[in-house]
Amino acid sequence: MDDKLVIAGQELSSRLFIGTGKFPSHRVIPEVINRSGAQVVTVALRRVNLDYPEENMLNYIPEGCIIMPNTSGARNAEEAVRIARIARAACGSNWIKIEVINDNKYLLPDNYETIKATEILAKEGFIVLPYMSPDLIAARRLRDAGAAAVMPLGAPIGTNKGLKARELIKIMIDEIDLPVIVDAGLGRPSHAAEAMEMGAAAVLVNTAIATADDPVTMAEAFALAVKAGRMAYLAGMGVVKEYAEASSPLTGFLR
């Protein structure tokens, strides 16, 4: 099946993106990435430690993966832009996941500042994937600002609660002509499958894999779920019926 996800002209066969925070050790990351088949890996610039090779996350990402640094820690557009510029130099990648968070209680992204940062960075030639609260209007503005995809949260980050924002994300998928990647909140492979069945272009998972007892096996489980969900979406799922079909139809007399 030739089903490629295309972002900024880059063809991807894997629709599972991986986050690298929260793991018990960097050393497990290469195996997690291999078993998940992920081709896009996000790394927080704040954790990139160029002075100490053993602790440098970048050294644990297999060759061939697209490194997508993120702006974790940015509280406004200006900080996100500054972090993105440093990240490009440090990681040698012009992909950037914009993350602007100024609420430490729920870690919800600030769509307004995210749009501002997207506009600036897209003009500077970055491939911008903004993390956002699911909102159609904000997504349109992000598209107009030059985003390469949009990444709405399924539920607040780290909660593992699943696709709580389902209805809002569905609308975005239906209406936005950009890849919609569900980022954050997916706690189980079945949540990822659900997002893919609904038509999400991809999902980004970190906490659920990193904090599993066996992160490597969990990474593979997510990969399988993403594949299954995508196949189901492409296959065209049967309609869920709200009623049973009676064997003697009430309107049978019309025949």
Partner: peptide
């Protein structure tokens, strides 16, 4: 490491 935890040496980037 022996207890299954990642020691984080850097968690901020001066900007």
């Amino acid at each position: 490491y022996s207890k299954g935890f990642q020691p984080v040496f850097k968690d901020w980037q001066a900007i």
